[in-house]
Computed example of a mutant assay.
Amino acid sequence: MPVLECKGLTKRFGRTTALEEVSLTIEPGRIVGLLGPNGSGKTTLIKLANGLLTPDGGYIAVCGAAPGRESHSLVSYLPERTAIPTWMSAKQLMDFYGDFYRDFRRDTAEEMLAHLNIQPRQTVKQMSKGTREKVQLIMVMSRAAKLYLLDEPIGGVDPATRDYILSTIIGNYNPEAAVVISTHLIADVEKVLDEVIFLHQSRVVLQSTVDDIREEKGMSVDELFREVFKC
């Protein structure tokens, strides 16, 4: 069964169409790059999959269920902006995630926090911007979810932090799950991707494996993206 499936998915905001007739399938065990220019519909698709928005047409399902109360236990979501309470300590964050999500693996979170030398009593407010982003990602990736939706997980952080975040994603997701990474920093994430989905003007213009792009096109994903979306 696909982890995420869309058929003819459409979403409008007033007169603006954010997604139009989007059809795609994401299977378990895949890390998928959701790529496209600003305004192409990436965040809208992620929010629909997380049940934060409702479609105006078509079909979307997570492990066969429509996004909503039933699917919330299956999806681990990293929003584009840091959304963890700044007054909480690292320990309080783990307590919160442990209370809220049955699949939260506290030992995994504790191990990653220790690797970053983050003390359990250190509050989010005391952390640097890069460390806050790492901590939020650690909480998200410490769940044994079926679908991880990561919206710009490496935006605005230094290259060393990007490497740490990508290694965290690879090393900690449930192998029976799928990971969707929305990003503009294609060259940075390409090495971890199995597949890519290109969105343009609210539609899917390409879904392909990274290996097929390299073999059939003779170029990297970043090079193909620049060619497809050149101004």
Rank of each mutant, 00 (worst) to 15 (best):
V3S: 01
L4Y: 00
E5W: 14
E5P: 05
G8Q: 05
T10N: 10
K11W: 06
F13L: 08
G14D: 01
G14K: 00
G14M: 06
G14C: 04
R15W: 08
A18G: 05
E20I: 08
E20C: 05
E20Q: 13
E21F: 09
V22T: 00
S23M: 03
L24G: 03
L24D: 04
T25Y: 01
E27Y: 12
P28C: 09
V32W: 09
V32F: 02
G33K: 02
G33D: 03
L35Y: 01
G36A: 03
T44L: 10
L48E: 03
A49T: 01
N50C: 12
G51L: 05
L52F: 07
T54P: 13
P55T: 07
D56S: 08
D56K: 00
G58Y: 06
A61N: 04
G64H: 03
A65P: 11
P67M: 05
R69E: 15
R69S: 08
S73A: 14
S73V: 13
L74F: 02
E80V: 00
R81V: 12
A83F: 07
P85C: 06
T86L: 15
T86K: 15
W87P: 10
S89G: 09
A90Q: 01
M94F: 13
M94H: 06
M94S: 10
M94K: 14
F96R: 03
F96H: 13
Y97N: 10
Y97V: 12
G98I: 07
D99S: 14
D103H: 04
R105I: 11
T108G: 09
E110Y: 11
E110R: 11
M112H: 13
A114I: 09
R121F: 13
R121S: 12
T123H: 15
K125Y: 15
K125F: 14
Q126D: 13
M127S: 13
K129P: 11
G130N: 09
T131R: 11
K134R: 15
Q136T: 12
Q136F: 10
L137D: 05
M139D: 14
M139L: 10
V140M: 01
V140G: 08
V140N: 09
M141Y: 07
A144S: 12
A144T: 06
A145L: 07
K146L: 04
K146V: 08
K146Q: 14
L149P: 05
P153K: 06
D158Y: 14
P159N: 06
R162H: 11
D163G: 05
D163T: 13
L166Q: 02
S167M: 15
T168Y: 15
I170L: 05
I170N: 03
I170V: 13
G171S: 02
N172G: 05
N174G: 11
A177C: 03
V179A: 03
V179T: 01
S182K: 00
T183A: 11
H184Q: 12
D188S: 06
D188I: 00
D188M: 02
L193K: 02
D194C: 01
D194T: 07
V196T: 04
V196E: 07
Q201M: 05
Q201I: 07
S202M: 09
V204W: 02
T209H: 06
T209V: 03
I213E: 04
R214V: 08
E215H: 14
E216G: 04
G218C: 09
V221Y: 01
L224P: 00
F225Y: 15
E227N: 05
F229G: 03
